[in-house]
């Protein structure tokens, strides 16, 4: 009897020790996972707000510059692309494309002083650039969380736990490198590693 006791105690001790090590790590992975999701939701909110603002903008512009078809189609197309994008990477690309189209619209608008002075138009442009800035802030926050999460997931013993409980790698909301014609917005240095 006594001979059996010692190995059992040792095994139990090892199990307790492992549990003590694993449980907090598991919890912090869950926590980080939730953080990433909540930051991502903030990006999606702002993307949605942007999608909602575009039709108003298009209508206002049409009232003054009905024959500027080209730019209007471009905006409509990039809007639907953004609406259809599913992954963070596609969304980031489509969002940058829409930003580019909007900045080209601003160039076109220079020809229409009445439109430029229109209170409704100015307000819409302010709200659109406001959402743009909010997206920039939200994506920076999101990318920071993703970085923390992925780090936790890859480092020991997080990597074992992540494998056991299927914590998947998260994608960065990454800026498209050729979106240089977009208005200058600083995304901070944290999203490119």
């Amino acid at each position: 009897m006594k001979k059996l006791m010692t190995p059992i105690i040792v095994i139990v001790a090892i199990i307790v020790f492992l549990a003590l090590m694993i449980v907090p790590k598991y919890n912090s992975l869950v926590n980080a996972d939730e953080q990433v999701d909540s930051k991502y939701a903030q990006i999606e909110n702002q993307l949605q707000r942007r999608l909602d603002l575009i039709p108003n903008l298009v209508n206002t512009v049409k009232g003054y510059a009905s024959h500027e078809k080209e730019i209007m189609t471009e905006i409509a197309e990039s809007r639907s692309k953004l609406a259809g994008a599913k992954t963070p990477q596609d969304q980031a690309a489509a969002n940058d494309e829409l930003t580019g189209a909007l900045s080209r619209l601003l160039v076109v608008v220079e020809k229409y002083p009445d439109l430029k002075a229109d209170a409704n138009f100015r307000q819409l442009m302010d709200e659109l650039s406001g959402t743009e800035n909010r997206i920039a802030v939200a994506r920076e926050d999101y990318n920071e969380e993703v970085q923390g999460y992925n780090k936790l997931r890859r480092s020991f013993p997080g990597n074992i736990i992540a494998g056991m409980f299927n914590f998947e790698k998260k994608e960065y909301f990454k800026a498209n490198p050729n979106a240089a014609d977009a208005p200058a917005v600083d995304f901070g240095g944290n999203d490119t590693k």
Partner: peptide
């Protein structure tokens, strides 16, 4: 203080 209102104050 929505963006549009602030824009008006600026302008």
């Amino acid at each position: 203080l929505p963006d549009g209102k602030i824009g008006r104050i600026l302008d």
